[in-house]
Design a protein around this nucleic acid. Structure first.
Length: 660
RNA sequence: GCUGGCGUGGCGCAACCGGUAGCGCACCUGUCUUGUAAACAGGGGGUUGGGGGUUCGAGUCCCCCCGCCAGCUCCA
């Protein structure tokens, strides 16, 4: 007679036979993928224990979704080893929106291979293989997996924080007890097995047809450039076909917003091949967006107590030895050029030159805080493989400022800067963001200068201000610059992607290296603290972010063309040109009239595609009434608006920086 | 930088196993055109990213550069 045990299932107490599995507890509910037992995820086929609190976990919650995706990774691995028996297994964790699995294969995967793998996966899914957990000793695992050198390596690393060994490694060897998961066919035969911590979904059937292989690419084993490259296959998996489709639709939407595509379509900017990689040029229309933005940002800086300064793009190399950029970050700088027998460098940072402005005369405590600001264009020799549109370029125009303050005033200045950058982001329609605190990597002391005390103090000041802001704060260990820690603002755009925008860096190093000082009230000489801050980080990147955020439909104040006149017939062009044009231009609005010999519907279409915020139509009715008809971007209309009202409406939208 | 894929008129694409480059949009010209996403006709424009090679013949095959895309690594 089986003994009875007591379990708490989803909050209610039940008495069941010993030997009852978690699957039995949730019998009939196929949405349940795993059980959460006293807070820990377990496979459904395991037996429940006396006194356990058991919760059902479905793909509706993050834990369940990750299990689903990790199981999909196993199915992929099985398919790969079916089609490519030479493939050795790396790591296969779930990731945002999907999963990947790394393989060591003789030949990289082709797009055709991915199609074939997807088919093989579907067959495995349709077979309805079950995942069965089996505990193994380290020694047995070494024997069983002798053909899998990467797995053996992971076994050797388990214990002390497997995720330190390689991102995602915890899903393979996360616990102290090694386990292997066997995929078992309906006839009981074992189809495949993999070292894995688990848990897994009960059956491959759960995956249905809601998965897809996305791409393959190389990835360094355990994330290090020094290690061999494995072939990583990325896939996505969802609880249902509909959710898969919704995800693919989201990707398609992102592609439509891609600033590289819109930049060409809207004639904003380009990357001429002869210029070289990562060097953008702004066309007249993109130039308007850039200039409007810069004008506004410059004005706001001046209002906030910054002085607008200017500095050259190149300098004698010596300057960057003083600042510490050479040799600390020589890799990121372009090689020197010889001028009159001396080495010059394109600057990679503006701060050294601002320091020279500070140092150009004696400073008093009465001069502080001294805030220098400019749009400083710097050049960085980014590796070719990382360049991407406007978001990663070799020419970076920073809206860069340096505040020189007394040590006592530093926390207040950091707070001031953070408030300032956040208010600027809001003005540009970005109101969804979080903060990141980048600190020193204690294991690489040679990459950072300054004493422990200095770093601790600087980090604490930044952390205090960031915490006080009430915004979400994410740690970024090891992400600091060599001269000090930083707060960065990560902004989410209209479709949820995040971009590093503003940075605020606390620097106690450069003032010392440059011998900066001021005379205090007591007559002593003191060293100021300098605080670096870029509000949008890079103007180029920010233009790209704006294009994507607005999907090219800029708010009127940023729009290259704010209003476009379309005559119903040629006869009304002069009215739009002269009468309407004069009124709009008197308000300083950017206005054009479509005088091409296209017919009316074609002009509407052209205007639509150009995403002009205000289309002004005029025919006989409008002209005789001294009015225009509005056509907005959504296709809606407002007919017969008296001209002065029309101008006032457009001017107000521009002035208020309102989206329409 | 690494791995893989890709590079055809301004843009988006086509050209079977190598046979000597075509379509749409845009552009130019003409005719037409009074109300909301494409009037019609004609025309110009490419030494197929660059350079070498194989071949009777290369957009198609090989090598080296350059650039683009994805991922990895990196991002002061």
């Amino acid at each position: 007679m089986p003994a009875q045990i007591t379990v708490h299932v989803a909050g209610s107490e039940r008495s069941v036979d010993a030997g009852t599995t978690y699957a039995d507890l949730f019998e009939g509910d196929r949405a349940v993928l795993v059980a959460r037992v006293d807070g820990e995820l377990r496979d459904l086929h395991l037996e429940a224990g006396d006194g356990e609190a058991v919760e059902p976990v479905t793909a509706a919650e993050q834990d369940g979704l990750e299990v689903l995706r990790h199981s999909a990774a196993h199915v992929l691995a099985q398919a790969v080893q079916q089609l490519r028996p030479d493939a050795r297994l790396g790591i296969g964790p779930p990731v945002r929106d999907g999963f990947y699995y790394d393989f060591d294969v003789d030949e990289p995967f082709t797009p055709e291979d991915l199609k074939a793998l997807e088919k093989a996966m579907q067959r495995i899914v349709n077979e309805g293989q079950t995942f069965r957990r089996r505990e193994v000793s380290d020694a047995d695992a070494q024997v069983e997996l002798s053909g899998e050198p990467y797995k053996i390596e992971l076994i050797g690393l388990k214990g002390g924080g497997a995720d330190d060994a390689a991102e995602g490694a915890a899903v393979e060897v996360g616990g102290s007890q090694l386990t292997i998961y066997d995929n078992v066919r309906r006839d009981g035969s074992v189809a495949w097995g993999d070292l894995c911590r688990g848990p897994h979904v009960p059956s491959t059937k759960v995956l249905g047809n809601a998965f897809k292989l996305m791409r393959s690419a190389a990835a360094y084993w355990r994330g290090s450039e020094k290690n061999p490259q494995l072939q990583r296959v990325y896939g996505t998996a969802w609880p249902s076909k509909d959710e898969l489709k919704a995800y693919l639709d989201r990707l398609a939407e992102a592609e439509k917003r891609d600033h590289r595509r819109l930049g060409a379509e809207l004639d904003l900017f380009s990357f001429p091949e002869v210029l070289g990689a990562g060097l953008p040029v702004f066309h007249p229309k993109g130039g308007v967006v850039k200039r409007e933005m810069e004008d506004y940002v410059r004005q706001r800086h001046i209002e906030e107590g910054f002085s607008y300064v200017g500095s050259p793009h190149i300098s004698r190399e010596e300057l960057f030895y003083t600042s510490g950029h050479l040799p600390y970050y020589a890799d990121g700088m372009f090689p020197p050029m010889d001028v009159d027998g001396q080495n010059y460098r394109l600057k990679a940072m503006n701060c050294p030159i601002h320091n020279l402005i500070y140092r150009s005369r004696g400073r008093s405590y009465r001069d502080l805080p001294m805030r220098l600001f400019e749009f400083g264009t710097v050049y960085r020799d980014e590796k070719s493989g990382v360049l991407s549109g406007l978001t990663r370029v070799r020419m970076i125009t920073q809206d860069d400022s340096h505040s020189y303050v007394t040590k006592e005033d530093a926390p207040g200045e950091v707070r001031h800067l953070l408030d300032f950058v956040l208010s600027l982001l809001r003005d540009f329609g970005l109101d969804d963001y979080y903060l990141e605190l980048s600190t020193r990597d204690d294991s690489k002391p040679d990459k950072f200068i300054g004493s422990d005390e200095q770093w601790d103090e600087a980090t604490r000041i930044l952390e205090d201000v960031a915490t006080a802001s009430g915004l979400e704060l994410v740690p970024d260990p090891g992400g600091a610059a060599y001269y000090g820690p930083k707060i960065s603002v990560q902004a989410r755009d209209a479709i949820g992607r995040t971009w590093q925008m503003s940075t605020i860096q606390y620097d106690f190093n450069q003032p010392e290296r440059f011998g900066l000082e001021y005379q205090a009230a007591d007559g002593s000489r003191q060293q100021p603290v300098m605080i670096h801050s870029a509000k949008f980080g890079s103007i180029e990147r920010f233009v790209g972010v704006l294009v994507e955020h607005y999907a090219g439909a800029f708010p009127p104040w940023l729009s290259p063309v704010q209003a476009l006149g379309i005559p119903v017939a040629d006869e009304f062009a002069p009215y739009l040109e002269d009468v309407v044009g004069e009124a709009l231009r008197a308000e300083g609005l950017r206005y054009e009239v479509d005088t091409s010999d296209d017919r009316f519907p074609k002009k509407i279409r052209t205007a639509s595609k150009s995403k002009v915020p205000f289309v002004l139509i005029a025919g006989e009715d409008d002209r005789s009434a001294g009015a225009v008809s509005f056509r907005f971007r959504d296709g809606s209309q407002k007919n017969g608006v008296p001209l002065d009202e029309a101008v006032a409406e457009i001017a107000a939208a521009v002035r208020d920086k309102r989206q329409v």
